[in-house]
């Protein structure tokens, strides 16, 4: 499954500029240090953190996309930085729990 497939199937809103890529597994956390330690390359990262420090973290662990849940507004500097590093920031109006359910339904597991 690619980021493009997800956007169409779940109705996510892309905020940054990025190239589509394969998605493998999902990681949910609002603690950056937890992401650094636990997320795997290619994971989707679901969070409500919107501070721009999520961008280096996403870049360094090499997640396939960051999904900001609960329709939380993302500051422009976060979006700009993400575009600069080709990091996908997607937005969903669903709460993390509901979104996880949908992703699970699509066959995405924890990797």
């Amino acid at each position: 499954m690619t980021t493009q497939d997800l956007i169409t199937k779940i109705g996510l809103k892309p905020l940054s500029k990025f190239e589509h890529r394969d998605v493998e597994g999902v990681f949910v956390s609002d603690m950056l240090s937890d992401v650094m330690a636990g997320a795997k390359s290619g994971n989707l990262w679901l969070t409500i953190q919107t501070h721009k420090s999520i961008v280096p973290a996403a870049n360094l662990v090499d997640v396939s996309a960051v999904i900001i849940t609960s329709g939380k507004e993302v500051p422009q500097d976060t979006v700009d930085l993400a575009s600069k590093y080709n990091i996908a920031i997607l937005s969903s109006d669903l709460a993390t729990f509901e979104l996880v359910g949908k992703l699970y339904g699509l066959g995405l597991g924890a990797k």
Partner: peptide, 15 residues
Amino acid sequence: AMGFGSGMGLPNIKK
């Protein structure tokens, strides 16, 4: 609150 400091830093470097 910013998502840092869950006490995983140094152990994660070691890993």
